[in-house]
Each structure stands twice: as C-alpha cells, then as structure tokens.
C-alpha cells in the first residue's frame, strides 16, 4: 500500500510540474501587464515597477528563477498587495478554505450516503421521491443560486444564522457556507448511493445474509453497504474538484477570507503571482486528495489493491 502511494506520488510530480509550467507561460505571454490597471501611470514608473519585479528579464530566465524559488517554498511577492508576499497571503487564507472545504466534503459524503441509503431502503416511497427530487435539483442548480436562496431563508427570513463573515470559524458563521458548498456533492452522492445500494441489496450475498437470519441493520451495514460504497468513493475525486470550484464562489458570496476569494480578487487585480501561487496550491491539493480517494478505494476493494 505504501509502495503504491509512493509510486503514485512519483507520477504526480510531473503532473504538477506540467501544470505549473502551463500556468506560468499562460500568465506571462499575456499582452499587457499587472501595472496597466493603475490609473494614469507614468510609462517610466511602470517600467521601473516591471524591473523591480523582474518582469523585464527574458521569459526563460524568469521561469528558471520562479522554479528555483518555488523549490524553497517562495512564491514571490504579490503584485497587488505591495508589501506582502504570496506565501503569506496563502498561509492566511488556506486554513479558512481547508476548514470550509473539508467540512463540506464530509457533510456531503455522510449526508449524501445517509439520504441515499434511506431512499434505497424505502424504494418508490414518498421519502424516496422527495430525496431524489431534491438531489436532482441539487445536481442541476449551481451553488451561486442556492447560496443566496439559503441566505434569504435562514439568514434574513428566519434570522437564525449570520449571512456573511467568518469570525474565526465560529460555528454559526460556518453553517450556511458549508451547507451551500456541500449540497451539490451531497446530491450527487445520494443519487449514486441509492443506485448502488439498490443493486447490492438484491445481490446474492445479501440474500444469503438475510436467509441466515441476521437482523436487518446488520444486513444493511455489514453486507450491503460495503460494495455499495465503491462507486461513491470513485465519485469523491470529481466531488473534491467540484467543492474547490464551488469554494471560489462560496467564499466570494459569504465574504470569507479564504484562498478562493483571494484567487478571484487576484484575477480582478491581475495579481499574476498570487493567481499562479493559488493554482499551484489547488493543483497540489487535488492531486493529493485524489490519491487519498484511490487508496480508500483499494482499502475497500481488495481486487484493485496493488500487489
């Protein structure tokens, strides 16, 4: 298992390298620079700024410097926040985003599986149809619609929850963003769990388990659930990617100080080094989380376990 993980990490390194390279050159070949947005800037001053940030050097030299610094964990200075560097900005935002994202993924996973199992056990009942209808809506309606609707209802109409801000991750502040972010994953996982549970509930080994007189909960939890988990685990990869995309929007809507919002602000300010740094962080996270999902898959299904 450990060898498999190491092997996958070795494969992941070039992937990350290609992403860094592609992103770097995409950003640097752009016409216009980050300082074009400063109103009425003196051309000489702009030239000096470019010099100060090494943007006047040949592209390949810049690239080499960037990689050398990156290897030391230095992501360069931010172009928009003049006295900050990118690593600091990311270090500030990442805990917020991680807390938001991980809570949402866990809620989506467990909430979705519970709904899916419940729907499968009561197939074609009113509860089943309700869960599946909500799940269908959850898959099709993007987060930037559900988030304001949740805010309207729970924040403004009922007045139960604060509608924006982070307050150091206080529980009440985190509920609405986490729920809004978890909904698409929860909906997708509920649908998949329902389908695979229905399949495994009619499998031979489950019939055998019932025939030997096991209590129903044991049949469901011990025998039906384990094979039904497999498609859910393989959906985790896309769900994680979806949550990362969603977090950009959710952090912007709720005004949370995470890296998703920093990414959007960086894009609006043309803060190239910040964008590049955040893309690298996101790519690394996605690769690592996918690796984790694959390892869980191997743990659940011995057939795909590498020898």
């Amino acid at each position: 298992m450990l060898r498999y993980a190491l092997k996958r990490l070795v494969v992941a390194a070039p992937t990350l390298f290609v992403i860094i390279t592609v992103s770097f050159f995409l950003i640097r070949v752009a016409p216009g620079g980050p300082f074009d947005l400063i109103p009425n800037i003196d051309p000489a001053a702009a030239e000096n700024l470019r010099k100060a940030y090494d943007l006047d050097k040949p592209l390949l030299e810049q690239y080499g410097n960037y990689l050398a610094k990156l290897a030391r964990g230095d992501l360069g200075p931010s172009l928009a926040y003049r006295d900050r560097n990118v690593a600091e900005l990311i270090a500030e935002g990442l805990p917020v985003s991680a807390q938001l994202g991980l809570t949402a993924i866990l809620l989506g996973l467990f909430g979705g599986m519970l709904c899916g199992i419940a729907a499968a056990l009561r197939k074609n009942s009113a509860a089943d149809f309700t869960v599946m209808a909500i799940a269908m809506a959850g898959v099709a309606i993007p987060t930037f619609v559900t988030a304001p609707l949740l805010t309207l209802f729970f924040g403004l109409h009922l007045g139960w929850l604060p509608i924006s801000g982070w307050s150091n991750g206080q529980f009440t502040h985190i509920i609405l963003p986490v729920v809004a972010l978890a909904l698409p994953a929860m909906a997708g996982i509920a649908r998949i769990t329902r389908g695979s549970m229905l399949e495994s509930l009619s499998a031979d080994h489950v019939r055998t388990a019932r025939a030997k007189g096991l209590p129903e909960w044991k049949v469901v939890v011990r025998h039906a659930l384990r094979p039904a988990c497999m498609p859910v685990v393989s959906y985790l990869g896309p769900a994680i990617a979806g949550a990362m995309t969603g977090s950009v929007v959710i952090e912007t809507i709720f005004g949370l100080p995470g890296i998703g919002r920093a990414f959007v602000e960086g894009a609006l300010n043309r803060d190239y080094s910040l964008i590049l740094g955040i893309v690298i962080v996101y790519a690394t996270l996605i690769i690592l989380l996918n690796l984790l999902a694959d390892m869980i898959y191997g743990w659940l299904d011995p057939r795909v376990r590498p020898q």
């Binding site: 070039p14 992937t15 992403i19 950003i27 752009a30 995309t245 990414f263 893309v279 996101y282």
Partner: peptide, 22 residues
C-alpha cells in the same frame, strides 16, 4: 497532456485565461 490538464478544474484555467487575455 489531456490527463494532466484534467487534474485541475476547468474553472481555474478559464479564470487564468480570462484574467490574462481580458
């Protein structure tokens, strides 16, 4: 190359492209 580009959600690349090219 397709596999590699797949590893990052499309929205991030689109945001980079839109930022860079207007």
């Amino acid at each position: 190359l397709v596999d590699v580009l797949y590893s990052l959600p499309a929205l991030f690349f689109v945001i980079i492209l839109v930022t860079v090219f207007g």
